[in-house]
Design a protein around this nucleic acid. Structure first.
Lengths: 200, 200
DNA sequence: CCACATCTGTAGTGAACACTACAATTCTGG
DNA sequence: CCAGAATTGTAGTGTTCACTACAGATGTGG
C-alpha cells in the first residue's frame, strides 16, 4: 500500500506567508483567498494540512513564538532586571518597526476582539502573551532573590507592566509610530524598573 | 410641505447600544444584525440615520470621546505631572474593569487590524488615541516650563509612554485582567514619570 | 383634508465568505 | 506494472454579510 502523492509545498515556508497575512490584517480580516494566494497553494491543500482557518492561525502562532523564543531566552539571560527590561523593550521597539515584517506584534494584531464564532482567537493570543509574561516574572523572581530588585518589589506586577508596555508599543507601531518614537517609550519605561532596582 | 414622519427612537440612546457592540466585538466582528437588535431598530433606520456601518462607528466614537472628555479634562487639571499620570492610569485601571461597560477601551477594541475595505478604521481609532496623547503632551510641556519636570525631560515621549501603557492595560483588561492587576501596572508605570519629576 | 416629506417594517439583493466534492495526478509498496 | 493512498486544481456549496427596494404608516404645511 503506497504512501500517496507527496506534498508539493513546504509547510513552514507557507506558514511564514500566512503569518504575515494574519499579522497585517488580523484573523478576521484575513480571507482564505488572501492566505492561499500568499502561501502559493489552493484551498484544499490548506485544509488538508491545517484543518481550518483557526488551525492555520494556531500553526502560524506556534511558528511565531518558536522564531521569537530564542530571542526571549537571550533577553532573560541578561544579568540584571533592569537590563532584562531594557533589552526586552528596546528589542521590541526594533522588531516592531522592522520593515521585513508588518508593523507591531502578531500576538496583538492577530485579534483583540472578534466576532461570534471566533471568540477563542483572542483567548489564544492572550495565552501566548501570558507565556512571555510568565517568563519575565520568573526572571524577576530570581532577580529579587538575588537582591537585584528591592525586597518590596512585586515580580508579577513588574512582569505584567513590561508586558503591558510591549503591547502598547505594538499597537503604536501598527498605527505608524517609527522606531525612534518607540525607543523613547522604551527608554522611559525602563526607568520604572530602575526605580525598583537596588542601587549599587 | 410637511416635515415627514418623526423618528421613533432616540439617536443617542441607540448610539450607546451600538457603542457597546463595537466595544465587545470590534468593528469587523460586529454585524448589522447585532447592532440593529441592540439598538432596537431596523436596518433602514440605521442607514437613514448614520449612512453606513462606518458612519455608525464614527458616531459611536464621537459619543465615546465626548463622554470621556470631561474626565480627561479633570486628569490634566491635576497639579503635577506625576499626579496627572497617576490619576490617568489609575482611572483607566478602574474604567477598563468597570462591569457597566465591556472590558478594555473602545479605541483599542474597535479594531487594531482590519481587512480590505476597512483599512481606515484602525486609522480613525489611532487618530482618536492621538488626541488624548496630544492633550497629555501639552500638559507635560506646561509641567516642564513650571519646573515640575526635569529640564531634560521630553514631554512628547512621556505622553507617548503614558498612552502606550494605557493601551496595553486596555488589551490586558479585555483578556481578563482584573482591577487589582491593572492598578499594579499603573502603580509601577507612574514611577517612570516620578523619575522624570524634580524632587522637592 | 389633502399633498408631501420622512420614517418604519418586511423582505429581499448581490457579493464575499469559509469550506468542500470531485476527478485527475503523483507517489509508494508489492 | 499495478493497487492503494495522499495531494492537487477546478469549480463549486450553503451561509452570512452589508446594504436596500418598496409599500404602508405617520407626521407637517397649506
Amino acid at each position: 500500500m503506497g504512501m500517496g502523492r507527496p506534498r508539493e509545498f513546504d509547510a513552514e515556508t507557507a506558514l511564514d506567508q500566512a503569518m504575515e497575512v494574519f499579522w497585517r490584517h488580523g484573523y478576521e480580516g484575513a480571507t482564505i483567498a488572501q492566505l492561499t494566494e500568499a502561501m502559493g497553494i489552493n484551498p484544499p491543500s490548506l485544509y488538508a494540512c491545517f484543518g481550518n482557518k483557526e488551525g492555520l492561525l494556531k500553526a502560524a502562532l506556534d511558528r511565531y513564538t518558536k522564531l521569537r523564543g530564542g530571542w526571549m531566552d537571550e533577553v532573560v539571560a541578561s544579568p540584571t532586571a533592569r537590563e532584562v527590561a531594557e533589552r526586552m523593550l528596546m528589542g521590541i521597539a526594533d522588531k516592531q518597526t522592522d520593515p521585513a515584517n508588518p508593523p507591531g506584534c502578531l500576538l496583538v494584531q492577530g485579534g483583540i476582539a472578534c466576532g461570534t464564532g471566533s471568540e477563542n482567537v483572542p483567548f489564544e493570543l492572550a495565552a501566548r502573551r501570558a507565556q512571555n509574561e510568565d517568563q519575565l516574572r520568573d526572571r524577576f523572581v530570581r532577580a529579587k532573590t538575588e537582591g537585584d530588585l528591592k525586597p518590596t518589589s512585586d515580580p508579577a506586577a513588574l512582569a505584567r507592566y513590561v508586558s503591558a508596555v510591549s503591547v502598547g508599543m505594538g499597537v503604536m507601531a501598527s498605527s505608524g509610530a517609527d522606531r525612534e518614537a518607540l525607543r523613547q517609550v522604551a527608554s522611559v519605561a525602563v526607568q520604572a524598573i530602575e526605580a525598583q532596582s537596588k542601587q549599587e
